[in-house]
Amino acid sequence: MATGVSLAEAYDRALACDPTSAFGGIVALNTRLDAATAAKVLEIFTEVVIAPDADEDAVALFRKKKNVRLLVTGGLPDPTVIGPTFKSVAGGFLVQTRDTSRLTPADLKVVTRRAPTDHEVRDMLFAFTIAKHVKSNAIVYAKAGQTLGVGAGQMNRKDSARIAALRAADFGLDLSGSACASEAFFPFPDGLIQAADAGCTAVIQPGGSIGDDKVIEAANERGIAMVFTGVRVFRH
């Protein structure tokens, strides 16, 4: 996931995060698909592209390819709409209200000696938004509107942090100066230390652990700017 000055650039930056997994993948866009981006997408094997709308010349490019499906939604769903979500369990199901939480810079509480720069704040919020949509335990590294590494679905947060950094290294992405988002608190300093060692300089996490003091101390020792969101965004 990434942003860019053009859709094509955003696609390139997103692809750079994990070109391996992109094979046979699904590309989701939040803006009108143009021909330049369509051409890029069709360079690698892609199953589905979903976009709110598409230019005619972009559609024409897709018509030539047999096994790619282009889904045009006609709009974007409103992420703030409340409603139920369901989880299956044996003999029944769990119903919960959708996670409509959204953060603004004003929601962030700086807990370290060093406060984040404006760039870091933007990167932290971007990373945290992505972490919200990653299966727990989730660790996301991001910088300048580009996802650099994702650690998803691990049994512990430290492993997620390690895997996210490993992925970034595999694809030659530099984590120095990046922001690290953790969708739930770090219970111990180990995950944060892992992130700091990988080069990240800003950490965003919900806070609220009895180990917060130790995690803050570890952040201060490494000159990390850390903010607490007060909101956890688990997704199982």
């Binding site: 119903v95 919960q96 996670d99």
Partner: peptide, 9 residues
């Protein structure tokens, strides 16, 4: 639910 701000049953 999955998070404290989500009601669940």
């Amino acid at each position: 639910g999955e998070n404290p701000h989500q009601a669940a049953a």
